[in-house]
Nucleic acid binder design. Structure first.
Lengths: 229, 229
DNA sequence: CGCTAGAGATTGTTGAACAATCCCACAAGG
DNA sequence: CCTTGTGGGATTGTTCAACAATCTCTAGCG
């Protein structure tokens, strides 16, 4: 009986995250985040406190809390007495973001000397989805799946803080994806390059995967830089 | 005349950061941050909105904005309907923080194939200050200087975002420093280990510096873990 | 043409109010 | 004795209205 109880409690423990309630401010932030990441609110637009609080039916105070959250994620920039704006990435921002990606992704890869096969399922899953989306012609979703692939690479570090950092970095990068003229031409080629990285990892050839990832990041940065300048 | 004007404008440009005004919430956050990092408010204390807003002469709303800021830096944890608490680091937190440090610091070191000598002045400066503090017996300040040394290492990556990340990581780590029983015994030995790393870098022996840093991080983590458990 | 002043709009901050939730002590029941 | 309701009191979550501080833009001035 005691053993059953322990097992039950442990099961509940694992689902605890599901009942993680959230404040209004957090839900507002989530909503705005979605809109921004979907491109509904293009970069450099100013977000009026008055208009949005009225539209969402929340008080200005609550909305401002939501703004703070998104500003910390760098999706919004807050200028004192001027308001909040959807961030517009500069070329410097872009290089910086890729610098972070290099540190995180390459570091994560180097950390896993012995490639634990069960930790690659997330990579494989993201890859499969990217291919499915490509087959359906949903090129924006291909970009999303690609991002999840690299999020999974960062997750190999096994660190919650690194995971969250990577999420924010990719969210920021998505701001440039939105203004790319031809999503297919940009996203499609990277699917097979990710596949190659995944294959190398599954084969245990970590060093080769590392080098392939270096080339991937270099190429992606160069191509995005060309798009924003 | 035009040249003088340009020079003047450039000089002002550099000081612009100084006049970066700040909102009340940010100033309140800075004040609380200082108190926490100095150990005046020990981990796991609950911060009462009513008491603190009254004490600082700001409204509850403004104080709550400050709380949000510090919660995002992970100095405070926010529990819905229960309030905010000064974070108490768990052993898992500690390991995670060192995982991030490994990624960032080692990655930064690997990034600088060619060691630019003028970029090492910040390292040398932090080191000198650590030694000065040690000579004065101000052991807590020795810890601060040591942290700045490693902040300078992270800065070798040349990325603003990495720099800010590292600042937050070190601020969190300081929460453990505060509860260490014997500051001298803990901080003093690391000064010369940092000196060794600095020496190796200045000699251009990046690989050796890298290995020394690995040992440094391993030892520091082990010792801190023993202190919190 | 450039500069200044001022009106109008927007953000920053406050204080009070009420709802929702939590904490704790105490009683009821097995 | 231990567990399970049930209150009251305190704290947080959220809203609202108001005012101060600051920015933006335009019209008018030299």
């Amino acid at each position: 009986m005691a053993q059953n109880e322990v097992a039950l409690l442990e099961a509940l423990e694992q689902e605890r995250s599901l009942l993680g309630r959230s404040s209004t401010a957090e839900r507002v932030a989530a909503l705005l985040r979605e809109q921004i990441m979907a491109g509904a609110i293009p970069p450099s637009t100013r977000l009026s406190e008055d208009a949005i609080s009225r539209a969402l039916g929340v008080s200005r105070n609550t909305l401002r809390e939501a703004f703070r959250l998104l500003a910390h994620e760098r999706l919004l920039v807050h200028e004192l007495n001027r308001g909040v704006f959807v961030r517009q990435l500069t070329p410097e921002d872009l290089s910086d973001l890729f610098q972070v990606r290099r540190l995180v992704e390459l570091g994560a890869l180097r950390g896993v000397r012995a490639v634990a096969p069960e930790r690659l399922v997330a990579l494989r899953a993201a890859l499969d989805e990217a291919r499915q989306c490509a087959a359906d012609g949903r090129w924006m979703d291909v970009g999303t799946a690609n991002m999840r692939f690299h999020l999974a690479i960062a997750a190999l570090a096994g660190s919650p803080r690194v995971g969250e950092l990577m999420e924010h970095v990719l969210a920021e990068l998505r701001l440039v994806f939105l203004v790319m003229p031809d999503p297919r031409r940009f996203h499609e080629p990277y699917v097979e390059r990710n596949a190659e990285i995944c294959r190398l990892l599954e084969a245990g050839e970590v060093n080769e995967a590392h080098d392939a990832l270096v080339r991937y990041l270099d190429d992606a940065e160069r191509e995005l830089l060309r798009a924003v300048t």
